[in-house]
Design a protein around this nucleic acid. Structure first.
Lengths: 194, 194
DNA sequence: ATTATCTATAGATCTATAGATAATGC
DNA sequence: ATTATCTATAGATCTATAGATAATGC
């Protein structure tokens, strides 16, 4: 039983982090507060010392999950010798088997899209911001003539990434699932980093 | 109170149809059986005369929703003067504001992707089949040199469609939402039906 | 007589709260 | 003394079932 202010903050962060993982794995409606607190190593009675309501946790956890995905993507491309290489690495990472299978730490723009579309404004604003961040990153990596054209291509590329990994997770034919990821990755790299 | 065999079948179909709509709107976990039966104009006690379990209904409803989406798409392209025109119409319909907003009758490959990825084999097999159907349709409409290249382009196009509409539903910035749909549509048409 | 649907309810689980307990920090 | 977490529980809601009711179809 931890009781200091620092420990309370640590508990708070742990609950948010746990929820960000489990909500991506099972969906926002896929776990109750008692099981969630147990997964964080706490009892459910303590929950309301940290959050005003379940909704409140959802907003924090969705925000955390979205930011985490953004950081992961940023660090994936960091220090790459060229924009072209960085873009190729980003595409391969996003459409990897690891990203498909590790739902709990995966990009929330894909994993939580439908949950967020049914959530409150706080969740949707965080989602909107993250989509904006991804588009900015992609625009900076796409090497084509006009700025406007880069934005259109960035939107299309992000849509392709999100759609491909979503479908690859839902089909139960491993061969098709891999084909979806590989075809999308090959085509995107061919178009954007030839 | 209907009591004939024909009426029972009609009730069964109505429950499935209602669930296929509401599950797309609110998610599979977004409604209980009592409210679902009420939405179908019945009382919840009658549910188990039609289905062995909630899971059983989910499987039927997900299958229905997926098939409905396939039929809608097929009828959208039907009777078009050329493959190029058909492809343009399909892309515009999928990325329309109407399709974004009418979740209850929308394409289940997008709307139910995350629910299906957490569902049983029956749901996932139906999803896999529908993805196959969509790819076949797209391959038949894409006019490029090699067969293999058409399949890769079809997968990429379907991913783009699914990803764009998913994100367009989740963001709460109407301008960005429309931009996502328009950019994806413009770019897809430019690439596939120039 | 059979059966589709209804009312009523059991038992589990969910969110939220109240009050007890065991730490911290003055 | 204060407070973070615990145990216990209220009240609502969920899936599933039992038995009553009101139609159909012989």
């Amino acid at each position: 039983m931890g009781h200091s202010k620092a420990e309370k903050q640590a508990s708070h962060d742990l609950i948010v982090k746990t929820a960000a993982r489990v909500f991506r794995e099972r969906g926002v409606d896929g776990i109750g507060l008692a099981d969630l607190m147990k997964a964080a190593g706490l009892t459910h009675g303590g929950f309301y010392g940290h959050f005003a309501s379940r909704e409140d946790l959802i907003a924090e956890a969705v925000g955390f999950a979205l930011r985490e995905g953004g950081k992961t993507m940023a660090s994936t491309v960091e220090g790459k010798p060229s924009a072209k290489v960085a873009l190729g690495v980003l595409i391969d990472a996003y459409l990897s088997l690891a990203h498909r299978d590790e739902l709990g730490t995966s990009c929330a723009v894909a994993a939580m899209a439908s949950d967020v579309s049914r959530s409150n404004a706080r969740c949707r604003s965080a989602y909107t911001r993250q989509v904006g961040n991804y588009l900015e990153l992609l625009v900076s990596l796409i090497a084509t003539e006009k700025r406007k054209s880069r934005r259109v291509k960035a939107i299309t590329a992000l849509s392709t990434l999100v759609g491909a990994v979503s479908m690859a997770r839902a089909v139960n034919d491993e061969q098709l699932s891999r084909e979806l990821l590989k075809a999308a990755a090959d085509e995107l790299k061919k178009q954007l980093a030839p």
